[in-house]
Design a protein around this nucleic acid. Structure first.
Lengths: 232, 232
DNA sequence: TAACAGTATTGATATTTATCATACGTATCC
DNA sequence: GGATACGTATGATAAATATCAATACTGTTA
């Protein structure tokens, strides 16, 4: 369950402070700092449900989240994994009144909630900030779209290799890491079936490309994995 | 080839004027109107090449475009089809200096080019405009992402049904229309092989769901097509 | 502790999709 | 006019992926 909440950190000195807020007018930064709420979540905690009303702007200080949407009969599709310093829900916050996707913590995470009205107010006053936000949003969309287009092109082995490299290189920056998601969730993320996720992981283990102990993955042959992700 | 260019229309009285520009300061609208360039393109004309420097903001007044990106060995992937009143390249214009995709006319099209510096200048000054632009961009991204996520879930028949309904309902609003793209391009758009596009179109014809005469498609059984797009 | 639900695993099989081959029409280019 | 390229079309076959079934393991609850 949610393990903490409050407003401990001052935005001015926050070590996680985003580039986005780097040139904000001092008065505006104070208003953000005073009104923001900071919350902590444990793995599995639901942060927003699909359909919830959007009332704030969310910033992931630390941790890892999954952004997913419900499709027919209880099935889910994971749109992307949010990483620290990401603005969550940025995709939706200006185009909808309610979330078109759900957000769930997959690691212990700390989020900042900034009131949406305040944000819009600042955007209205501070064109420089607005432009930076446009850049940020554009960049995020680019990345998510790019990833999905890439994954669409790959066969199943390529997708598994890609996602393993994603966790190893982009998220944990380590050869050995603990998968923050189940096999089923990997399947939902890269558009395949759970059984095939498991099968291909086993295959990679058999071929000494990775080591597996439950959730613990160790990359043994990164070059080969890169080649498989690239194609084949 | 490009068949026209110049600055004929006044933005103030333009019948294609976007909602986005509806509350612009009169002075700013004049600056847009004076600096904008209007160009016409024929089917097949390349509007921007992947990698081109971004210098303007593009607005599609009429026509139809394809937005695509090159992948390995001469293959292409079509990201989306742009329709009238769309701001083209909005996905990229604030996050990159150069286009990450190419844009090609697939029907006779008229575009407005607005200088990017001018746009950024207006955004900086006019927070209300900036906010509307954020909404527009967000909405566009939503739609493209949503479509791609949907297509990922469908089998090949579902994808073909979906794309036929897209052209019939969203683009032409008619039962009978001329496909603006080749079978190969359909394949690139919905992530399948040309042969299978052709095969499934033939199958739909055999089952009296559609009529085909070359590029001319006629929807004969819309309900069935909807059901197939939905699932099956 | 037993019962239970969710997850992971593997094998056998069915279905879907891609690939390869061939043919034919159409437009383009010299 | 013939050569060439490209789009459309269909069939046969191979490869990739999903589905179904069975089992084991995990943690949680009664």
């Amino acid at each position: 369950m949610m393990t903490g909440m409050g407003n401990i950190t001052n935005c001015k000195t926050c070590i996680y402070r985003s580039y986005l807020f780097s040139n904000l007018q001092p008065g505006d930064l104070s208003r953000v700092s005073l009104s923001k709420k900071e919350k902590e979540y444990d793995p599995g905690d639901i942060i927003v449900r699909q359909g919830d009303k959007i009332t704030s702007f969310m910033y992931l200080k630390s941790g890892l989240l999954k952004i997913s949407r419900a499709i027919s009969d209880g099935k889910n599709q994971i749109i992307s994994i949010a990483r620290p310093l990401d603005f969550i829900g940025l995709l939706n916050v200006f185009s909808n009144n309610s979330y078109q996707f759900g957000i769930t913590a997959i690691e212990h995470s700390t989020l900042c909630f900034i009131d949406l009205k305040l944000m819009k107010d600042i955007i209205g006053k501070d064109g420089h900030f607005a432009l930076k936000l446009l850049e940020k949003m554009s960049g995020m969309n680019d990345m998510i779209m790019h990833n999905r287009l890439l994954i669409d092109q790959k066969n199943l082995r390529g997708r598994i290799a890609y996602i393993l490299l994603f966790f190893s290189q982009d998220v944990y920056k380590k050869d050995k890491f603990s998968l923050p998601v189940s096999r089923k969730e990997i399947a939902e993320l890269i558009n395949m079936r759970t059984e095939n996720v498991i099968r291909i992981l086993s295959e990679f283990r058999r071929d000494r490309i990775i080591g597996i102990e439950g959730k613990i993955i160790r990359i043994l042959d990164r070059d080969k994995l890169i080649r498989i992700a690239e194609f084949g």
